[in-house]
Design a protein around this nucleic acid. Sequence first.
DNA 1: CCACCTTTGAAGAAG
DNA 2: CTTCTTCAAAGGTGG
Length: 616
Amino acid sequence: MPQLNGGGGDDLGANDEMISFKDEGEQEEKISENVSAERDLDDLKSSLVNESENNSSSSDSEQAERRPQPRPDLDSYEKTRDYFSEALRRQQDGGFFKSPHYPGYPFLMIPDLTNPYLSNGALSPSARTYLQMKWPLLDVPGAAGLKDPRSPTPGHLVSTPYHPSSHPHSIRFSSRMVLYLAPSIFPSILTIFPSNKVPVVQHAHHVHPLTPLITYSNEHFSPGTPPSHLSPEILDPKTGIPRTPHPSELSPYYPLSPGAVGQIPHPLGWLVPQQGQHMYSIPPGGFRHPYPALAMNASMSSLVSSRFSPHMMPHHPHGMHQTGIPHPAIVSPAIKQEPNSHDHMSPSMHSKSPGPAKKEEDKKPHIKKPLNAFMLYMKEMRAKVVAECTLKESAAINQILGRRWHSLSREEQAKYYELARKERQLHSQLYPGWSARDNYGKRKKRKRDNKPDSTPEDFSIRNKNQCVQYLPSEKMCDSPASSHGSMLDSPATPSAALASPAAPAATHSEQAQPLSLTTKPEGRLHHHFLTGKPSGSASSSSSSSSSSSSSSHPSISIPIGTSGSHSAPIFSRPIPFSSLHHSMLSPPSPFHQAALHSHHALFQSQPLSLVTKSSD
DNA sequence: CCACCTTTGAAGAAG
DNA sequence: CTTCTTCAAAGGTGG
């Protein structure tokens, strides 16, 4: 088992970390100053924010929640062409994963697989994420079949693990799906269903957004089976090898037949940068393996290969991308400064030798940190917010985003947490040796040190400043929820809780957090307890509700795989996948229940007063 | 041209 | 073990 059994496991299971939800008390500070203003905003906000917020608020019923807006499947179907924008919008609206056009959607998202790469050959984040989840889960033993180094085609890699046709139940796919997708391409899909025999169209409501990713169970795999056929559409005419569709040809979201698949919003679609950029920027020229290990690691390679266009495969005749392990996270230092990318690849080429130290830097590509949940969210939502608002300043936008983040239902947040986790996992797999510390000092240090806390005045001033600067704008578009914490307050039914381990009760937001105006300090505090360090709490107390010392805070550990320690991407735990996945698919599943229970327990046990961590 | 601002979360470092 | 610091994205702003 190569690696990842655990890795894979983890992903879904997610266990390693504890997800904590915080409420938005923080904002209050700012808001408090403008309370009146805020009220005014409400109206505005409501109009602006609408769906997403509504969602969360109405989280009572999953169903309601999921579909803020009634959406005829077919109807939208026709609109597919413009899907991209539309989908994006939808997702942004709050439907992220929730409002599939059709129930089966979660599975459908797989199509994105084919389109892992962006025009330049880079992977789209979504794809990346997706694959990542998938592969680890695959846990293909031999890996040999898995990744034949010789075969450049990512496609085979992708499909290798299990051939759809191999599965008896594959037929069960809804005709629709079949039509839309080339089964061979999305073997994973097939594997999913069989187990439940659910007619493809499962209701998304019951499905965890990430379900598709986690659903794979080893049982269904047939590692040896190669993909028999690939969709012609994605085949490279020349090579016959599946190639990455170009944006022009296919929608970033839906590589497959645009008409058919296009309408399905990729759950991870939001991850795809709207402007066509990657989550992690990639050097135009391609990458070299930052770490030899990468090249060696079979599993890894599978990951990589699956994610990269054939052209990037190492063995590829053309030198251009030959080296590549183009993980988006890698950024050559030079790139940051200028477009030129080859620096790190071939120092020799790069004449510029500023100095030994610098040189070193040049050599080493800058590997960015994986994005956290909020960052992911930000990435997705920013455009929307910007569109809604007249604001342009990121700082202001970010404030809004922060509020919205808090206003998200736990479920919604949970999605991001999971995605983030996967990102991290993938990242760790890709760059085993990398540590956050590596990037220290790369950025110009933010000198915020003085800020501290210290004098209230300081921050008060600061705060004020913020308010003045940004708040006004927020008025124009702000998320309502945050202000009142309405959504959070409402415990949301269990159903909501299901998906997200979350939160105990978030709610306390305001209660817990008195309007303290403190800005930073408080924020920090807040931060802490909300955050609940995964490692500590999660790992230490795997199960018990009373997670670690921080019990005071509202974080809940995810029932899921739990064993994982987060630091170690891999866990020993064999796999709950299958079970997990089942559970995920079906609503009443144990998993959910467990989640629920824990949730409740937490709830009860945790009086709203949580807040606690007094700052003293 | 670059740091700052701003947000949350993760992770490392320091205490 | 707890607390603090840095960085991740982003893009207008100001020096």
